[in-house]
Computed example of a mutant assay.
Amino acid sequence: MSNELEAFIEYVSIIKALSKKSVGAYKSDLMALEETLRKPLITLDSNSLLNALSIYKNKRTLNRKLSSVNAFFDFCYKNQFSTEKTKFKFSKIPKLLPKFLSYEEIQNSLNQIDRSTFLGLRDYALILFLYASGTRISECLALRREDIDGEWLHIRHAKGEKERMVPIAKVAIMAIENYLNEKKKDTLFIWSNYKGEKLSRISAYKITQKYLGVSPHVLRHSYATSLITGGADLRVVQELLGHASLLTTQIYTHIQKQNLKETVQVCHPMSKEQK
């Protein structure tokens, strides 16, 4: 390991106090480059580095390596180990539409749940609630009875500590009430396991995986997708999801565009004319 690289690792681990995992990633990425090229990184030109990194065909992996290299050279420049401010551009990764389920797919799965048992009632209510509210699983599992007021859901334990109010469908509230009425043990949190303990993220994942074959987060995407295709404004969806930035919500923009296109094709008379 070169002296400059050793100084950088010391900087990120002691001065910046990064996690062991982050420090390990930096160390692994940068040491691998020095070992491959058999030269200190500080002495290498841009072409040599890019050629060495070209072996990574996965763009996300490549960008992680580039991030490590950029952080190293930024450190060297600021500490006068280098007179040049070297920075590599990241590879563009196409934004993929998050996986989602249609209302019909969710409804068909819900119909398969045996609601004659307590756990069946809970699983049915949980899936229905996730789709009806669009909550993150952490927000869902932190809910208490007082957080549901009429047809409104008060999300107190939101990401970034930003509370929000979300309207929720009556059918989901009724499902929760039916489940709570069968609860033998009164608990602080709404969702609990068969022992009466707070339901864990792993258990929630197993429930949605069992009936839908997806993670709980897919139901959040399904909620947003249903709103967008139903004509909801993007900023309204942002508020309901609790996104700090509209940029995060814009992953659903092309759903909106596709829905508009399909509407025009169905409704506009000129779209039916033959060329």
Results as ranks from 00 to 15, higher is better:
L153V: 03
R235Q: 08
I251R: 12
K20N: 13
R201Q: 05
S22A: 15
A32R: 12
T83E: 12
H254L: 11
L53Y: 06
I127M: 10
R144Y: 01
Y26D: 05
L212I: 03
T248M: 14
K85G: 03
L50K: 14
Q274H: 11
L121V: 00
G120H: 01
I251L: 06
L5P: 15
K183V: 07
Q274E: 14
K195T: 00
I255Q: 13
Y103P: 05
F73I: 02
A132G: 12
S215M: 08
R38P: 00
Y205N: 02
S192P: 00
N178F: 02
A175R: 04
T61R: 04
R136A: 10
W191F: 07
K162S: 02
G230R: 02
A132P: 01
V171N: 09
A169M: 07
D147P: 10
I176P: 05
K170R: 07
E273K: 15
K89Y: 12
L188C: 09
P94F: 14
E84T: 08
T83K: 13
T248N: 08
L212Y: 08
H157Y: 05
E6H: 04
K272H: 11
C267G: 10
S13V: 03
A125P: 07
E161F: 00
Y211G: 05
K170L: 03
E6N: 11
M270N: 06
K65V: 06
T253V: 12
I251M: 13
N111Q: 13
L241E: 09
V236A: 15
Q256M: 11
V218T: 13
E177I: 03
A175V: 02
Q107E: 14
L141F: 11
D233N: 15
M174N: 15
I173D: 09
N51V: 02
K16I: 07
Y194W: 04
I168D: 01
I155C: 03
Y26F: 12
D29Q: 03
T187L: 08
L199G: 08
E197W: 00
Y179S: 04
A132S: 15
V236E: 09
R60N: 13
K20A: 15
S109R: 12
K272E: 06
H268E: 02
E182K: 15
V266T: 06
A204I: 01
A169L: 09
N47C: 11
M270H: 10
E163D: 11
Y124A: 09
S19H: 10
R115G: 05
W191Y: 05
I207N: 11
E35N: 10
H221Y: 01
A17L: 13
V12C: 14
Y56K: 14
I15M: 11
K65A: 03
F88A: 02
K95E: 12
F72Y: 12
A17H: 14
M165Q: 08
E161T: 03
I173S: 09
A172M: 05
K92Q: 13
L49S: 14
G24K: 02
A244W: 00
S203V: 02
F72R: 05
P167K: 03
Q256E: 04
T43G: 07
I173G: 10
K257V: 05
R201W: 00
N47I: 13
I55N: 10
H157S: 10
E4M: 04
K87R: 14
F90Y: 14
I176F: 01
F88G: 04
Q107P: 00
G196K: 03
E34V: 10
T36H: 14
